[in-house]
Design a binder for these strands. Structure first.
Lengths: 214, 214
DNA sequence: CGCTTAACTGACTCTGCAGTCAAATTTTTG
DNA sequence: CAAAAATTTGACTGCAGAGTCAGTTAAGCG
């Protein structure tokens, strides 16, 4: 029983994501969002108090998926499995939520002025946890001594780039948009760089005791 | 003999870079640029016709360094040397021209609406050239079969991230700004991922005939 | 010097857009 | 059904901020 309310909020949010991703917060006109949603402008203000509120909801929508992508780090697992799963999740987000991803990236680029302290803290805590996890692997001799901070920054950047710099990617590849095979190639390239770069044996996928006791 | 003109244009350009990088084109006020440059607003319009003109000049200023960073690809050299030099150049740009870098990234994120077709073509041609170069190395057996497009995207993203997402990097590392050692660690991490990830022997630095004939 | 050009300035205009409102219409519910 | 609540609407307001202008001061130069 999705009421008119639900449907319209969804329409507006979707339109807003696209507009904010395309032009950025300041350059986006609420009238354009309304037009793209197929509604008159006052409706946007009826459902969302202000342009900023609407923007914040778009931002909010990407945070949970982003935190969820770190799930592999939150359960025990071999580095190769965790890193592979993490990279694939990040790539999937770039592909499936390209607009919100871009909005988030833009927000971070400008110093996260709209992110609440709680959200910042949540993301930061997860990042710290992932870094600690990698450091533990290094201490256990499961991977080479690669600075966990920089490793994570590289993974984050390399996966995020498929959402943020889609224009550049289209221009260079000559394709309007990437298909399944392209995303698979992207994931495999990044996974390869990371696993080989860290001297992690790619996928034990068999008796994990053998490996973890190494 | 740097006249008042030269000095003031420089002051305004520097201020503009910072403001545009911080807030983005649309959210930047010319009055703020003027204030940061220590000049009244009409002077900004006296030296630059419009906000957009000023923005374009900031953009322009990063293109040459960006093209220059690809220089290693334009002369013969072993993959390890070329890739290492390329990554170091890119990191150096992120560090030394952080504001213009960010403005450029933001411009690309929004589909490069202010880049001239010539500039786009120049950058694209260089990218294509670099990709072809990498493909040649693969064909010659100098490195593993890693999709050159995605490899380049990863390098670009990983190096650029130090300018674009400085806020995130500060937040995670807990440092207000990175020092020499941090940038060195960043460069080495990325170089390691790329060289090991591509099965390139890291630095022959001796008789190159031995290697190129391999 | 005085004349020309460059640089500076405060006070203005004008447009585009965020946000509002009062009234109309539709939907829900007792 | 009628009354209440939710939704839709076009026409409005207010203001911030890009860009201008007429006039002033300061540099360069014979």
């Amino acid at each position: 029983m999705t009421s008119i309310r639900e449907r319209n909020k969804e329409l507006i949010l979707r339109a807003a994501s696209e507009e904010f991703a395309d032009k950025g917060f300041a350059a986006t006109k609420t009238s354009d969002i309304a037009a793209k949603a197929g509604l008159p402008k006052p409706n946007v203000y009826y459902y969302f108090k202000s342009k900023e509120n609407l923007y914040r909801e778009v931002l909010e929508s990407i945070i949970e998926p982003l935190l969820a992508a770190s799930a592999p780090f939150n359960q025990p697992g071999h580095p190769s499995e965790v890193l592979t799963a993490y990279i694939r999740s990040k790539i999937r987000i770039s592909r499936e939520l390209p607009h919100a991803s871009k909005v988030f990236a833009s927000e971070i680029m400008h110093g996260a002025p709209h992110l609440s302290p709680e959200q910042t803290e949540q993301l930061n805590a997860q990042a710290k946890h992932n870094i600690a996890c990698i450091q533990r692997w290094i201490d256990q001799g499961l991977m080479a001594k690669v600075d966990p901070h920089h490793l994570l920054f590289s993974i984050w950047a390399a996966t995020q780039t498929y959402a943020d710099f889609d224009w550049q990617i289209s221009t260079v590849t000559g394709k309007a948009s990437l298909d399944d095979a392209d995303y698979e190639a992207a994931a495999q390239t990044i996974i390869r760089l990371v696993l080989k770069g860290c001297d992690v044996s790619p996928m034990p996928s068999m008796a994990s005791e053998l490996v973890t006791s190494a």
